[in-house]
């Protein structure tokens, strides 16, 4: 017991402000294109394993929702026109379409708290581990009034990881239906956002938005915990 107390006291407080942690120099974040030096050789377009790079007019366009941040395009670029930056804050919240349940009202209803149910719809488990990391003492998700709950019936938001598999389609739709309205859905990670990570398969239905409406997309393979927090704050309109 004495050792236990000593350990707690000597550890002290380890929680950090959510985006204070440094990003290492090798980190593969947002892909930045220098269009002025790019010669449109299309080497990157053909090498990209998820076809996330295309030429639109005279510009190279990156689909960050599909990007798996593997760095292959940067490696093959002869012109040094591509670079992974340290920016991981890539979450997007598309403008709600007509007739959408979302969504400004949702924020009013929820106030500043959020109860989340996790649904693994066919992930490799990396995104799921990063969600687990949110509850560790470094990020301490609960301090923001946000927490994971055991049942969709208690949830305001579904955080869905993975490309939706055939075998999980029913579980995903039933979980969505069991969540009370108004509700938010976040697609976590590249395969949830785009459904492209594993190519065409008999066992895959596609991205999360091919099954249920998605309100927030958080790209990354996987998104680091701070990227998930960025997505959550974006959803709640709590970014400064």
């Amino acid at each position: 017991m004495f050792k236990l107390l000593r350990k707690i006291i000597t550890t002290g407080m380890v929680t950090e402000p959510w985006d204070a942690g440094a990003v290492g120099p090798n980190f593969r974040g947002q892909l930045v294109v220098k269009n002025e030096v790019c010669t449109r050789c299309t080497a990157c377009c053909s090498i990209c394993p998820v076809e996330a790079i295309a030429i639109n007019g005279d510009k190279l366009v990156i689909d960050h929702q599909a990007c798996i941040f593997c760095g292959r395009c940067v490696e093959v670029c002869q012109d040094n026109a591509l670079k992974h930056s340290a920016n991981y804050k890539l979450a997007t919240k598309p403008v709600p379409s007509e007739g959408s349940l979302f969504k400004q009202d949702v924020i009013k209803v929820l106030g500043r708290s959020l109860a989340i149910r996790h649904v693994d719809a066919g992930s490799c488990n990396a995104c799921d581990w990063e969600m687990t990391a949110l509850t560790n003492p470094i990020y301490d998700l609960q301090q923001y009034g946000i927490d994971f709950v055991a049942s969709p019936r208690h949830a305001d938001m579904l955080m869905v990881t993975g490309t939706v598999t055939r075998n999980l389609t029913q579980a995903l739709t039933m979980t969505y239906e069991a969540t009370p309205t108004p509700k938010l859905v976040m697609a976590v990670g590249s395969c949830a956002c785009s459904g492209a990570t594993y190519g065409t398969s008999y066992a895959i239905r596609g991205g999360v938005d091919s099954i249920v409406p998605v309100d927030i997309y958080v790209p990354g393979c996987p998104p680091r915990p701070q990227a998930l927090l960025h997505g959550l704050f974006l959803a709640l309109d709590r970014l400064k």
């Binding site: 394993p49 490799c124 190519g199």
Partner: peptide
């Protein structure tokens, strides 16, 4: 096998250096 993605099939016919990214995942 709920998250069965059929990766063994989806990499068939793909050059192995490209298929690698699915396998790593």
């Amino acid at each position: 096998f709920f998250t069965h993605r059929g990766i063994e099939k989806s990499v068939e016919g793909i050059p192995l250096e490209r298929a690698f990214y699915q396998i790593e995942r």
